[in-house]
Design a protein around this nucleic acid. Sequence first.
DNA 1: AACTGTGAAGTTTTTCACAGCC
DNA 2: GGCTGTGAAAAACTTCACAGTT
Lengths: 213, 213
Amino acid sequence: MASLKLNDIPPDIVIGRLPLYLRALTRLKQEGNDVTSSHELGRHLGISSAQIRKDLSHFGGFGKQGTGYQIEYLVAKLEQVLQVDREWLVIVVGAGNLGSAIAHYRGFADRGFRIAWLVDASAEKIGQKVGDLSVHPISDMQTIIRQNGVKVAMLAVPAEHAQSVADQLIDAGIRAILNYAPITIKVPDNVKVQYIDPVVHLQTMTYFLRSED
Amino acid sequence: MASLKLNDIPPDIVIGRLPLYLRALTRLKQEGNDVTSSHELGRHLGISSAQIRKDLSHFGGFGKQGTGYQIEYLVAKLEQVLQVDREWLVIVVGAGNLGSAIAHYRGFADRGFRIAWLVDASAEKIGQKVGDLSVHPISDMQTIIRQNGVKVAMLAVPAEHAQSVADQLIDAGIRAILNYAPITIKVPDNVKVQYIDPVVHLQTMTYFLRSED
DNA sequence: AACTGTGAAGTTTTTCACAGCC
DNA sequence: GGCTGTGAAAAACTTCACAGTT
């Protein structure tokens, strides 16, 4: 049953832009708009209108000629495409400053994710409260994942432990890892990894900070 | 004085990979290696060796045929290209959970950046200690930036304030902004912005989590 | 009149494949 | 034999431009 119309295989680079569209659309909605256009969306995102139309066209015709896009409808469709029309339970590994900040962040809930567990390796952190969560021992990690069918993990451990923790996560059934450790990890083809390393972004920008103006 | 050999204008996408090369090389060095090859680097990063050679060739010939790349030399060259062969002072705006986590993070210092100031808008946070830093009032922000010639900022404020704070940052002289707020901000051409929004990464991955295996 | 969806054209990025060097 | 640096070829991605619809 092809519940989602795929005219062809959408390139990964297109998938990477859909969350941005979704974010901008949600904002437009909050601001009281009901309808938008590829031009307006593009202006908000710094992307050409043609690209937005082309991207969306991979998943079916969501707009109306002459009118544009019904925001609510398009949001629903994009959520369906991205599979965030449900709630994903997330386990966070590492309860240091970063892991704690993640656990406290309020911005996951309404975008498809619930931080449900926080685990750490250090004995003195176990049992501590971090926001609504209490820290579980890392020895329980695989059991938590298996018993709850958890598929998504966030990795906030020191670089030297990232690979071995990732191996354990995957072994227990995790299929998507958001890795905050500044190191590339090796995973099988059926596991997705994305990286967040602020220094990489900063270093990309300093390249362009050559004295001109 | 062309202190840096540019055979042509390197595409932005190439610049974005250089910090990854730098990160992997630093790691290889730490592990005791003195020399590497485009193949080895590529294996570590999941990138083809041809791409690495092509990327590096934009900035000059850093390798030796038959031998590979002297890691220490290549690191020095890449740091020079990215301009992280110096220390950039960084101001962090927003001293909530995220701003605090950033201020505590030890991983900036040896990669070209020093978090030097933390400012916040809320009266009760002013004067508080966050790691080595104390929180300054946001009313001092522009003065701090101007008096110290700060060029790089990290933005960790709620989405609704991101644009107005960014405007103030730029007005005071900031030229690179790492934006953690989940919203696209408008900036002049001579200002660079990069975004970190964990939900965007998570949503990109859930797309691929279609039941197969 | 305004806007989408889309083939075709144009541009950018990646890979190939090999001459040249160690 | 092993590796780089690089033109040329291939692939991927973006923009153009317009027919078709509201």
